[in-house]
Design a protein around this nucleic acid. Structure first.
Length: 524
RNA sequence: GGCCCCAUCGUCUAGUGGCCUAGGACUCUGGAUUUUCGUUCCAGCAACUGGGGUUCAAAUCCCCAUGGGGUCACCA
């Protein structure tokens, strides 16, 4: 039998990074065993705009490079893949259950149920639904229905039984049915509820392995009961640990964002968002946050890095392999090596993986990815000329390992600015490095030499500075930081000679004169 | 509260009774390289939640405690 796994997102308008990890394990398992990975959309909350709500989710899969064999856009032989379009299938299953007595119509209104629950609570007793409607004779049921009384359908739980399952990651787990209330499987309007719809769908789509987050473990006995009542094959279940917030054991949740901003490990991701997003027109952190997969795409992570990091969250290949290509991960993925305890997302680890995968990326691809940031930030026009592209190549080259995420390119925006404003200059560095003794005077003098330089390369600039320093009997180290500040405004950055070479002769001379003159004025 | 799950360095993890004076990676600290930052290299800090068993031998098996988490809807 071929392996078939699935991921069933609700169209919520964004893809949760923890959900992506669950999806990844499903995808990996299918790919490892040459099976199929299916995307099914749990869109029972009908009203939403589906395109808007589903688009970002599909985009996240595409970005991650996780294709699906059946589902939206690609179709497949087991469709439809939207729950909202599968109502007849549920209806049929429901009728079957009702017909053979595995389920029953419950005419108790919600208020009565609520009262029962409160009563149980008051007596400090475990609540179990009271099966009043089960006492009804067939005639009464028909009568009630004729009257138009509302009812829900409940699964009749065999209270004397126990349900056990062998979970692929957790081993044997047993539940006592005597403790399980009869779950509602269909609402008064006939619409199915999650546990029921999921079970019917998983069976109908012939899913062989249900790999999902551990919070579903307690849903499993009910689902197994439904499989049994319907006479369906029970798939293999694998309950994987959820993804926790960095440094915690709590499930990562979008509702706790305010708390995460203060989390020491998480903080820098929010700071990066504040730094990058406003500049590329994505408006701060309110729109994108590190709980969403889209955040990683938009801030400029490599899908390979996120893929690698997510795969390592709760799974390991062996005792030492950390950096893994997709191929390696696919070849080695197994449910047996999934850890049982929750794993906190580790931004530091992700960054280190990111750095590795970035270093593996061909230079021209780095340029391709950086270009949109520069364009959106208004530093380059929409149509980039060959010269401009070449400039980006050079900048990326000297920026080297400092370019971790593509958004980092904005840190060296000075290479793309026609003029350097006073506000662009690092104030502290300016006072400390430029407004210092003879420095302004020396800079003005040296800029004349630069102006006369016939060859404008990093090495010729370096040579000229050395000669100048010698002639003045000073250390070149005195002028290096000042030159950097004058030409870029930044207190630190790539090699100063390379930097000057890229900025260009005219601009360098102009900027040095400007800034040094201002320093000289301040001194007097 | 009932039920269920989980428990190794700060973090992610290796470990399935003897290869464990517990291994790797990230972070951090120190050093070397680099007239900045970063990179790279080298070194270092750092953990089996506690208590009982079982056994010649336990991080590994069993029990209890503690702690953490999940779940108990006409949500998914």
């Amino acid at each position: 039998m071929t392996v078939r796994t699935r991921f069933a997102p609700s169209p919520t308008g964004y893809m949760h990074i923890g959900g992506m990890r669950t999806a990844l394990f499903n995808w990996l398992y299918a790919r490892r065993h040459g099976g199929q990975f299916i995307l099914r959309i749990d869109d029972t909350d009908k009203e939403r705009n589906l395109d808007e709500a589903l688009g970002p989710i599909l985009q996240a899969f595409k970005w991650m490079g996780m294709d699906w064999d059946e589902g939206p856009e690609v179709g497949g032989s087991h469709g439809p893949y939207f729950q909202s379009q599968r109502t007849e299938i549920y209806q049929k299953a429901l009728e079957k259950l009702l017909a053979d007595g595995s389920a029953y119509k419950d005419f108790d209104p919600p208020e009565v149920i609520q009262a029962d629950r409160e009563a149980a609570q008051e007596e400090k007793k475990q609540y179990l639904n009271i099966r009043r409607s089960l006492e009804l004779s067939n005639e009464q049921v028909t009568e009630y229905e004729a009257e138009g009384r509302k009812y829900v359908v409940r699964l009749l739980v065999p209270r004397e039984e126990k349900v056990s399952l062998t979970d692929a990651v957790r081993g044997d787990v047993e539940f006592d049915c005597g403790l399980i209330s009869d779950p509602v499987i269909a609402r008064a309007d006939g619409s199915p509820l999650y546990n029921f719809a999921t079970t019917v769908d998983d069976a109908d789509l012939e899913i062989t392995h249900v790999i999902r987050a551990e919070e579903h473990l307690s849903n499993t006995p009910v689902q197994i009961l439904i499989y049994r009542a319907l006479g369906l094959n029970v798939p293999t279940f694998a309950h994987i640990p959820f993804v926790a917030a960095p440094g915690t054991k709590e499930k990562l949740s979008k509702r706790k964002l305010d708390k995460y901003r203060k989390n020491p490990q998480f903080k820098k991701m929010f700071e990066a968002a504040d730094r990058v997003f406003p500049r590329i027109g994505l408006g701060g952190c309110d729109g994108l946050d590190p709980v969403m997969v889209e955040y990683y795409e938009k801030i400029g992570y490599l899908p390979d890095a996120v893929f690698n990091a997510l795969a390592r969250l709760g799974w390991s290949l062996d005792d030492k392999t950390e950096v893994m290509s997709r191929e390696t991960i696919i070849e080695n993925f197994s449910l047996e090596r999934v850890v049982k305890s929750p794993a906190g997302l580790d931004p530091d680890k992700l960054d280190s993986l990111q750095q590795y995968w970035m270093s593996e990326l061909p230079a021209s691809e780095k340029t391709d990815h950086c270009l949109p940031y520069l364009i959106h930030a208004g530093l380059l026009p929409d149509l980039v000329s060959d010269d401009q592209r070449h400039l980006v190549d050079q900048v990326i080259n000297v920026f080297g390992q400092r370019l971790s995420t593509f958004g980092d390119i904005l840190e060296v925006d000075y290479f793309f600015k026609a003029e350097l404003r006073e506000s662009d200059i690092d104030e502290k560095g300016f006072r400390k490095r430029v407004c210092k003794g003879e420095v302004p005077k020396l800079l003005l003098e040296y800029s004349q030499q630069l102006e006369e330089l016939t060859e404008w390369t990093a090495s010729s600039i370096e040579l000229s500075l050395q000669q100048f320093a010698e002639s003045k009997e000073i250390s070149a180290g005195l002028l290096i930081p000042a030159l950097r500040i004058c030409t870029t405004g930044a207190a630190s950055g790539p090699d100063v000679y390379e930097t000057l070479a890229i900025v260009g002769q005219n601009l360098c001379v102009e900027r040095i004169n400007d800034v040094a003159q201002r320093a000289a004025d301040l001194q007097s």
